[in-house]
Computed example of a mutant assay.
Amino acid sequence: MNAALATSTLQVRKAALSQTRWHTGAPVPLAPGQVRLGIESFAFTANNVTYAAFGDAMHYWQFFPTGDEAWGCIPVWGFSVVTESLCEGLAVGEKFYGYYPMGSELVMQPVRVTPAGFFDGAVHRQALPVVYNQYMRCSTDPFYDAATEDVQSLLRPLFITSFLIDDFLADNDFFGGGTTLLLSSASSKTAYGTAFPLARRKGLEVVGLTSPGNTAFCEGLGCYSRVLAYDALDSIAADTPCIYVDFAGSAALRQRIHGRFGQLRYNCSIGGTHVDELAAKGGSRDLPGPRPVLFFAPAQVKKRVADWGAEAFGRQLAQAWQNFTRKVTGAEPPWLIPERHAGRAPLEAVYREVLAGKGDPRTGHILQP
């Protein structure tokens, strides 16, 4: 095997996410109609930890199968360049934004190739949500800006989820009067991306719940009505009509919120940034109040495309994205500072840091395999 041409992918043990290994092999020859993409860079955030935590329940492990049921490949968002093509309409050197494995390359079977991009037509992905199978051609993508490529990798997939959470709650009239919204893991990018549009709606109190070490960061964002450390939850009146937007996935916190708030209108379960405390591992049993409902962003995309049409949905999303990124990059200090890491050891170090929920919330990790 030529080491210079070897492919490498970081895999994690599904039952013990702290265990990792590198899988290295020779590049697979392309079949007619296929394309090889060299992965240039990708973001790794708490959102990717959620993909791993819910890998079985939400089928995230199925996107990039490893051939070994005990080991999985966590999907990430980033950029790649075509290095070899046997597919008409896709030329060597073109750059694409999309969903990739944590590795050096991806071979795909493009279908529905247009000036905007293509979809991966691989058999194992056909039953998976289409939103994850689309690859955007950077030369025509209205979201793409070479100057803010890292910010796009870090925030674009998260903000789409944030945009849809805000829209879903409003679309359901905040479940009959839940005018106080409790957002856990408030320093996470998806949480403050959700707080940003919610803060623009009248009559809502958006409360950020976070660890004591992140309260100052969250307060400085200016998109939360108030910020509370987790141990200060009792400062909110028990009879407050509220909605819990659960980004943390902590079973203990979920129990406390359901036990305290008799007028909890809805529990919108988003992710699992607190992997060791995941409510999915039994913490949702025998809860008073409403049953926690896992939010599935592709379902809201499907609904809104049906309601508004694909073009109108795209325009609203693009406008919201522009408003958000202007705030993120234009604030002083910036809400997000990308930090690049290249090579196996730095990549693994970032993975373990994010998995453990550590690090500066203002730092966004961009990895180069």
Score class of each variant (00 low, 15 high):
residue 65 P to F: 11
residue 128 L to R: 11
residue 82 V to H: 04
residue 60 Y to T: 10
residue 145 D to M: 07
residue 130 V to K: 08
residue 100 Y to P: 01
residue 131 V to F: 14
residue 70 A to M: 06
residue 84 E to G: 10
residue 75 P to G: 05
residue 100 Y to T: 03
residue 53 A to G: 14
residue 64 F to Y: 12
residue 89 G to T: 04
residue 138 C to L: 11
residue 53 A to Y: 05
residue 61 W to Y: 12
residue 77 W to T: 05
residue 92 V to R: 10
residue 131 V to S: 15
residue 98 G to L: 08
residue 55 G to Q: 10
residue 51 Y to A: 08
residue 94 E to P: 08
residue 104 S to W: 02
residue 73 C to G: 00
residue 93 G to S: 04
residue 137 R to T: 03
residue 100 Y to V: 05
residue 126 Q to R: 15
residue 67 G to Q: 04
residue 65 P to T: 12
residue 106 L to P: 02
residue 115 P to S: 10
residue 60 Y to I: 11
residue 60 Y to Q: 09
residue 84 E to D: 14
residue 94 E to L: 04
residue 91 A to H: 10
residue 81 V to N: 02
residue 74 I to W: 00
residue 90 L to Q: 01
residue 99 Y to L: 01
residue 130 V to Y: 01
residue 70 A to F: 01
residue 118 F to K: 04
residue 126 Q to K: 12
residue 112 R to E: 15
residue 140 T to D: 05
residue 121 G to S: 09
residue 83 T to M: 02
residue 60 Y to N: 12
residue 100 Y to W: 13
residue 121 G to L: 08
residue 120 D to V: 09
residue 76 V to T: 10
residue 113 V to W: 01
residue 147 A to C: 06
residue 147 A to G: 08
residue 105 E to Y: 02
residue 114 T to W: 03
residue 93 G to K: 09
residue 137 R to W: 08
residue 144 Y to S: 13
residue 85 S to G: 11
residue 58 M to I: 13
residue 142 P to W: 12
residue 112 R to N: 14
residue 85 S to C: 06
residue 94 E to S: 07
residue 142 P to G: 11
residue 57 A to V: 15
residue 87 C to M: 04
residue 81 V to H: 10
residue 92 V to I: 13
residue 118 F to N: 04
residue 87 C to E: 06
residue 135 Y to A: 10
residue 134 Q to N: 08
residue 57 A to Y: 10
residue 54 F to A: 13
residue 71 W to I: 02
residue 146 A to I: 09
residue 87 C to K: 02
residue 63 F to H: 07
residue 127 A to D: 14
residue 77 W to A: 00
residue 64 F to K: 07
residue 123 V to P: 00
residue 93 G to L: 03
residue 92 V to M: 00
residue 97 Y to R: 03
residue 112 R to S: 14
residue 113 V to C: 06
residue 119 F to H: 06
residue 79 F to V: 08
residue 101 P to G: 04
residue 64 F to A: 05
residue 65 P to S: 11
residue 64 F to E: 06
residue 138 C to Y: 00
